[in-house]
């Protein structure tokens, strides 16, 4: 992940501090700020040394992405719920490779994490190659799992500014 340059460093790490503070407030009931301050500094130092930062976003794409993700989250939960509760077994688990079109390593990791909340798919590993391949565990190999993963990848390409918003190739 590339490190932000110049004034954007201050904005980026201020935003990160804000996120950390919000999480701390939620988890501790807004107590123990004297303990949080050195912890926050250590976290920021680690992010700086490990070159981790918040990815630049296309803010126009955020509402569409949230809508898409919420829809997929509901579909994914419903899909697994009816398979679990159906009287007859409705699963045919299998392994499937998916060629990733996203170019940045951070974007690929984000795709791998989010795929696990989509209907019927669970990411296992990213195998480096030309192109990089995402190894997926599919709950039912007879379903059209590819369409959902490709749609999520397209949404991420629109959302993340470092990516070119081109369609995935089958």
């Amino acid at each position: 992940m590339s490190l932000p340059q110049g004034g954007s460093v201050v904005i980026c790490y201020s935003a990160l501090s804000g996120v950390f503070a919000l999480c701390w407030a939620a988890l501790t009931g807004a107590r123990g700020w004297w303990f949080f301050l050195p912890l926050c500094l250590l976290l920021l130092l680690w992010c700086y040394l490990a070159k981790l930062s918040l990815p630049p976003l296309r803010f126009k794409a955020v509402p569409g992405f949230l809508l898409f993700f919420s829809h997929q989250l509901i579909l994914g939960a419903w899909d697994v719920a009816w398979r679990a509760l159906a009287p007859a077994p409705r699963w045919a688990p299998c392994w499937q490779p998916y060629a990733i079109n996203l170019t940045q390593a951070a974007s690929q990791r984000l795709l791998a994490s989010m795929v696990s909340l989509l209907p019927g798919t669970c990411a296992v590993n990213i195998e480096a190659g030309q192109p990089d391949v995402l190894l997926l565990h599919v709950l039912d190999g007879n379903t059209d799992w590819y369409k959902g993963v490709a749609a999520l990848e397209q949404q991420l390409a629109w959302l993340l500014r470092d990516e070119t918003a081109k369609g995935p190739t089958a």
Binding site: G76, A77, V80, A84, P93, L117, G120, H137, L139
Partner: peptide, 21 residues
């Protein structure tokens, strides 16, 4: 789903998706 699904990978589907929603 945790009890019925056939392998550990399939069980991960159940706990991740259903419990999140």
């Amino acid at each position: 789903g945790m009890l019925r699904f056939p392998d550990s990978f399939s069980r991960l589907h159940a706990v991740t998706k259903a419990d999140s929603l």
